[in-house]
Each structure stands twice: as C-alpha cells, then as structure tokens.
C-alpha cells in the first residue's frame, strides 16, 4: 500500500517521508549547482596538468614542482564534488534498517550504495552534535552493539535538525518496539511543512 508523501524543504535540502509495502522510507535530497560539477572537473584537470608537467620536465624538477603539485592537490580537494544526490533510510519492521546513497550528475549517475543494519545490532538512535575544526552541525547516528564508533545515518549530506527529528522519532519507535512495531504513518494532509518549525 502506498501512502501520500510528507514533504519538508529547507535551503538546498528536501525531505520526503512515505510508506510503501509496510516499509517506512525517509529520503533526503540535495540540490547541487551544475557549476560545482564543472569546477570539480576543472580541479581534477588542474591537478593532472601539474603532475604531467612535473613528470615531463624531469631535468628541471625542483622543490617548486613539489609545492605546485601540493597546491593543485589542495585546490582539487576544495573543488571536489560529492556526487551523492539523495540519501535514504528504510525502516523494515522485524528486520532492521537500510541506508542508501544515490549518486547523480556524474558518471556514477544512478548508482546506489546500500548498507543493511539488523535490528538486533541497533542499541539506540541519537541526534548528535558533531564538531569539526571548522564547523559544528547536527547528525543522526546509530549506537551499535559491539562497535566502538557511532554510525552516521547520513554519510554525505548534512540536513538541518528539523528534518532529522521525524526520522529520529521513527527510529526511536522502531527500536523501542524491538523492531516489530508498525512504522509511523505519514500525516495524510501535510504536503509541505514550513521551515520555521522549532526542534523541541
């Protein structure tokens, strides 16, 4: 049975929630600029050109060649484009959850990476604040049995917390019921939820 999807958008992210055949599906899409793809290719070409230049001019190799390659590698890394356009979480009652990454806009287009986590392995879903040397953001993670590290539900995308709260609630209901409970059905009449909702 297919139910009407619940949609929420904020900035470049769009969240969709639907139920298909008893499976609770949470999709997060990201809109990426086509310029980013172009810049990514430019960065890669810049690095290749620098490496080739250094290899072809062997007799003129010097310390500057090393710095040039290092600089181009940094530029390429900065311009690198993450080709993931969608990440999904599928909650399958009695089985577990499946994480999916869908690629797009490059030669990876259409490829999907899937990872299944059995219900018995999940201890708790958590909304975690992650801190990096340059920023901090909310992330939805799974605390797993026998693993010393948390597993990120969204490996490539950083959706806002208000999008992760309904997913976290669904996961909480799923894990609290031992995986046998019914997935949370979407609210039938909610087409669009405004982005100024608070997270409490």
């Amino acid at each position: 049975m297919k139910q009407r999807a619940r949609v929420m958008s904020s900035g470049v992210y769009t969240y969709k929630h639907r139920c298909e055949g008893g499976v609770d599906i949470h999709d997060v899409y990201v809109k990426r600029s086509t310029f980013r793809v172009l810049f990514s290719y430019v960065g890669a070409a810049f690095l290749i050109a620098n490496v080739l230049h250094a290899l072809l001019s062997k007799e003129r190799l010097c310390i500057n060649s090393f710095w040039s390659i290092l600089f181009s590698a940094i530029v390429t890394k900065c311009l690198q484009y993450k080709p993931v356009k969608k990440e999904s979480l599928l909650i399958m009652p009695t089985f577990g959850v499946q994480l999916e990454e869908t690629f797009g806009a490059t030669f990876y287009s259409g490829r999907v990476h899937r990872q299944f986590v059995p219900i018995g392995k999940i201890l708790k879903p958590l909304l975690n604040e992650q801190v990096t040397p340059v920023t901090c953001y909310w992330n939805l993670v799974l605390l797993l049995h026998g693993e010393d590290k948390l597993m990120c539900v969204f490996q490539n995308l950083y959706p806002p917390a208000k999008m992760m709260v309904p997913i976290w609630k669904s996961l909480c209901t799923f894990t609290n019921s031992g995986g046998t409970g019914h997935p949370i059905a979407p609210q039938p009449n909610v087409e669009h939820i405004h982005t100024d909702q608070d997270i409490h």
Partner: peptide, 13 residues
C-alpha cells in the same frame, strides 16, 4: 584566522 569559522558557528548557534 583559521579558527574564525568554528568560533562564528558556535557564537551564532
């Protein structure tokens, strides 16, 4: 300057 992005993020959030 390198600590500016994280300081700014914490101040705002």
């Amino acid at each position: 300057f390198l600590t500016f992005p994280i300081v700014r993020t914490i101040l705002i959030r």
